[in-house]
Design a protein around this nucleic acid. Structure first.
Lengths: 186, 186
DNA sequence: CCGGTACCATACCACAGGGTATGGAGGCAC
DNA sequence: GTGCCTCCATACCCTGTGGTATGGTACCGG
């Protein structure tokens, strides 16, 4: 019996979150998933509220590290926009939908999710600014891209990433056609 | 004590749904809101599952009637697109967010919401087709418009309809600039 | 060998929520 | 009046969930 760490609970918690929303994240289910009892849970966390808070921060940190740092490593802004699109498609959409729903009823979840979304918007906007799009238009394009991502997250099942790719690609095409006539000629 | 009808429960149920998600829709809260006890609830509905199902259908019927019929009454397709945009902005976004989250964990809710979204997409796509946009592009624009609506629904508080208006308007501008050069010259 | 600490199982309590059974008050038909 | 139906209050049970208290096992430093 190797000992369980907080990371095990976070993994199981994200799975429960993705599968049944924040309401499905319960101590009994977590312990059942890990093959332990409540004594183990309360040894690692002070309560269910404490766990949910840590789980949320864990999601935000992971998202910040994986998505934004991976995007920042691409020097060319146009190529970076493609990278961002693929990173967005590869996200855990089920979990994100659950977090977005959760953030409507919980102030702390709202703040964390908002911070993540704003960071994503800024990343997209910065890339557009670098290729010559006016500042105000770039900011709006960042918000539009995140909105399309969130909107597409709420449609289709798990395997429907092609639809998101199609929508996201179309928005990029339209944007390029208007703001980047030199970079992406039609 | 005037007797309570199912409509009273639907109104209270939508308020609870908008305020705290599907998890907040509980028999005790419904009865507390209406000033009755559980005996009244179980007289009108067979159980909480039956009530939720009826509530969902009630939302879909209302949406179908208010939004789509109001849009269908506008003959000019370009003017109709503006009407659709304003109707989308005026929706009960809190309730819709709750329903969209609910539809990720409930098969029946998923089917009903999907039907509503598809109907909205078709309405937008039909308007674009009428003004001369190719069929495939019009369909994609319908999905893009609904995606932006859903994405914007998950940001900002209740009073932040200006942000949605701005995003929605920008998408419309970009669309017009590409597909409707004659109708909306830049 | 002994004490402390990390890790966890067991047992128990409190409370909220869904569901059921029963009875009562008022109206309406006959 | 009698009977029936609508509408609803009260009381009760069962389950699931958060939380606590307690004890037990294994390892590690001294």
């Amino acid at each position: 019996m190797e000992p369980r760490g907080p990371q095990d609970y976070f993994d199981a918690g994200m799975a429960l979150l993705a599968g049944g929303g924040v309401g499905a994240v319960t101590i009994a289910r977590l312990c059942s998933e890990l093959g332990v009892t409540k004594g183990s849970f309360y040894h690692h966390f002070r309560g269910v509220e404490d766990f949910k808070t840590q789980l949320l921060v864990h999601w935000a940190i992971d998202g910040e590290r994986q998505v934004l740092q991976a995007a920042a490593s691409v020097a060319d802004p146009v190529e970076r926009l493609d990278t961002i699109r693929e990173l967005g498609i590869a996200l855990n959409h089920e979990a994100e939908v659950a977090i977005r729903a959760w953030s409507r009823t919980d102030a702390h979840a709202w703040a964390v999710r908002e911070q993540v979304d704003v960071a994503r918007e800024r990343t997209v906007a910065a890339a557009y600014t670098e290729v010559g799009v006016p500042h105000e238009a770039a900011e709006l394009l960042g918000r539009l891209a995140v909105a399309v991502l969130v909107g597409a997250q709420h449609r289709g099942e798990t395997t429907d990433r092609d639809a998101l790719r199609q929508l996201y690609g179309r928005l990029q095409e339209m944007t390029a056609a208007i703001y980047l006539p030199a970079a992406a000629p039609r």
